[in-house]
Design a protein around this nucleic acid. Structure first.
Lengths: 188, 188
DNA sequence: ACAACTGATGTCAGTGACTGTCATCAGAGT
DNA sequence: ACTCTGATGACAGTCACTGACATCAGTTGT
């Protein structure tokens, strides 16, 4: 065994989610999170840039999966089809993770600062997605627009998945929202 | 003349935009903004909730105009058409304000924290817009989706307006982005 | 085996955003 | 003149976050 318990980062993530859930984000101090994880406050800030980031460490991988899947879509796929492929791929990551996702989302929705952080993560997704579409030869504004719209579809699907009953999984909702999008513009 | 110079709020807004532009957001302290505006730091925080909000005081009116115009659209208009009406209405507010908008946007884009704040304002627009559409009888997910998509269209149009040459105004770009959106889903 | 090195952590002293509380005082109302 | 109100100043305090330096288990080179 090392000098310290291993996985300090993971302990911090867990402690933060627990405390934010118990007392709320604002009434939790970083010092308390660190104490529960058995480290000092300074160590917290070596692992996470600020008080909010501890809830968002997974987003990097998710973004890589999204762009990877879009880049790997067949060349014949339209921009929106390629995007749909990517969205369903990351939708698969959440299979069986509904309870955990719901808990985390409740914490985020309860606090404006955390919502801000989530929004900028989503914006980063959109930006990366747009860039991937451009690499597929899609021009602007179609690339940017498809990306923004695709992320909007994901957000709405995610929300409805968390709100809904347990018998339908996220990719289902993604397909449904995508269909609604198409209906929307064809009718206008 | 009163005990203090009037319009402290306006002076704070101007001082903040100037200082954020000169030294950057992070290297400016609230105390400096207050000093330039001739008030104390405490007074700054009586006018604005935090260091960022001073750049976003106009959003309340803008949101009211957006929802007002959408609500006032003819009952025969589709959700997307009603949304388009609202977007072009607020697009009109920016006529002739390109230089000022560009300056403010440069400050915001230069700092992640400010970008976060802008994103949550946009999200608030989308939420209010969705609610207005529901009041027009639009059901979900169409209401939420139209709202999100509409805001995406506005963001992209705004960006292209600031990037582009001076001879085209914002409503132009909004119409263009909207057309691109329709093309996008009809082809997929 | 021993010394130098590395990486994750602790310690400590800051800076600056933000809040609570109380005092002050010009102008409006009576 | 008297009181009341609203915007402000003054000041102390909490907490997020940073920089600088010390510590020490485990690894690497000799």
């Amino acid at each position: 065994m090392g000098r310290w318990e291993p996985n300090a980062r993971g302990r911090l993530e867990r402690a933060a989610l627990d405390l934010y859930g118990e007392r709320g984000f604002e009434k939790t101090t970083v010092a308390e999170i660190a104490a529960r994880a058995g480290v000092t406050e300074r160590t917290y800030f070596r692992h996470f840039t600020d008080k909010r980031e501890v809830l968002f460490s997974g987003t990097v991988d998710l973004q890589a999966m999204l762009t990877g899947a879009v880049a790997a879509a067949p060349a014949s796929a339209t921009p929106l089809e390629a995007t749909a492929t990517g969205l369903e791929t990351i939708g698969g990551v959440f299979l069986g993770a509904r309870a955990r996702s719901r808990r985390r989302q409740a914490v985020i929705q309860a606090n404006p600062e955390l919502r801000e952080r989530e929004l900028i993560k989503m914006a980063a997704f959109a930006k990366a997605l747009a860039e991937t579409l451009r690499e597929r030869g899609v021009r602007d504004p179609a690339a940017a627009l498809t990306a923004e719209t695709g992320i909007a579809v994901f957000k709405i699907a995610f929300e409805r998945w968390l709100d809904g009953s347990a018998d339908r999984e996220l990719p289902d909702f993604i397909r449904e929202s995508l269909a609604a999008l198409k209906a929307l513009t064809s009718g206008a």
